[in-house]
Every structure is written in C-alpha cells, then in structure tokens.
Design a protein around this nucleic acid. Structure first.
Lengths: 114, 114
DNA sequence: AGAAATATTAATCGTGTAGTTAATTAAAAA
DNA sequence: TTTTTAATTAACTACACGATTAATATTTCT
C-alpha cells in the first residue's frame, strides 16, 4: 500500500510530539484503556484524549470497545501504518540507489562510445 | 547507531511539514543551492531558509559551500538519518509478537470473568 | 431513579511556528 | 570602490497546537 500525502502528513504530525511517541511506546507492550494511558502521564485526561484522537486520525492506533463495560475505550497500536511509513522512508532513501544507477548508466554510455 | 529522543524529535518535527517533505523529495534527485530550492516553491527566500535550518538541525540535510563562489550554499540529503529513522520504526513495530500474546491473555481474562 | 464512573467535547488561554517585509552580512562584479 | 548578488537574521503578524477547567454524554452501580 502507498500512503497519500494527506495520510503521511497526519501520521508524521502525530509522531512529531514527544507525549504521543511515549504513548506509542507504551502501547507497544499491550492495549490499554484511555484512563490507564492518561494516568501514566503528567497530563489531564482531556489532553490525553486529544492526543489519542490525533494518533487515531494519523492511523497509528485504533479504538476498541469492550462488551463488559461500554464506557471504557481500549486503544491499541496499528502495525500496518508503521510498515507504510517504513515503505515511505525506503522510497525517500532510495535516492541513494538511484544515484548509483545513474552512475552506472553514465559509465556504460561512456564505455559504449569508445 | 541509535538516535536519542532529542534527535528523534528534531527529525520527526522536521518531516512533519509538507513543504519540508517536498524539499526532501526535491533533493532526492540532486543537491541544490538555497536559491534554487526557494525558487521552486511558493514561499519567500527567508521562509525557505528557515525550513532548511529546521531540516539541517533535524539531521536530514547538510550544507556545503562551493569554492567557486563562497556566497552560495548547496544543500544535499543525508541518507544516514533516514536509515536511523527506519531503525527506530522497526523497533517500534517490533511490538507485533508481544501484542498477539497480550491479546490472547486479554481474551482469556475476559472469558474467565463471566 | 439517583449517584458514581469513564471518557469526550466545549471554552479559554498561552506559546510556538510559519509566513511576510526590512535589514544585515559577506562575497563577487562593475 | 561602489554596486549587485546570495543568503541569512531581525522584527512582526496570524494561526495552529497543547494544556487546563468546566460541561456533556453514556453506562454502570446501589
């Protein structure tokens, strides 16, 4: 899958905040409820709620509801998006290989001319 | 190499802007002078200068000076930082195996509670 | 039904960031 | 030496973003 510019923007913007990266780091271990996440940081619940929304819109986490208690919302990481981001980075980094190809072609052209 | 939290922050913050990502995309092809970069976008030279500084501090590009004309500054991509970022993503994505276990445990706990 | 719990949205505030034009630095050209 | 050129820094404005407290659903517990 290839991310649109809009998706890339949301994803990178979401990761550009230290608190949100810490949340991602926390969710690596296991899914957690909104309250549990907020409690582990030095911010208010509303502030964390907004962070979670940004992460969700950035495609990095998703929200689940449990049947036992319809009030709680469980958040968990979405691995796909991280893989998409890796693919994006690979594409950007691919300039290196491209330059190498260009060099080869250049060398071949010169060789053929002789 | 492993990036510090501070470095990760600078790098991701630099990439969280559409204009700066477009600059990165542009520099994939070849190094360019500050003026050439600014001319390709719909922003003033000072604005682009700031973007370039953010990208440089984020470790994504570097500045070279040419001997023919000491006024011009040539910017080019630094591939290492992209690889470091990939490594960081891989580390975060590595949660997958653990997540599956956690899921199972979660499901079992729920089942037991009924 | 009424109270407590879970989480979000609303309203507000301060700060950081991107943009602009003007001023500045430094080097090449005339 | 004066003027142009290349690029940055300075000063200022507009707006998006993060944080907080208060208010609002919605669901559970007594």
């Amino acid at each position: 899958m290839r991310l649109s510019e809009r998706e890339i923007d949301g994803t990178l913007a979401a990761l550009a905040d230290p608190t949100r990266r810490a949340v991602v780091d926390l969710l690596r271990r296991q899914p957690l409820r909104a309250g549990e996440i907020a409690a582990r940081f030095d911010v208010s619940a509303p502030a964390m709620s907004r962070h979670l929304r940004v992460l969700r819109r950035g495609g990095l986490i998703e929200e689940d509801r449990v049947e036992e208690d319809a009030r709680v919302r469980v958040y968990r990481l979405r691995p796909e998006r991280f893989r998409h981001l890796q693919a994006w980075l690979e594409r950007v980094e691919g300039f290196w290989a491209g330059q190498l190809d260009a060099f080869k072609q250049h060398a071949e052209t010169r060789a053929r001319r002789r």
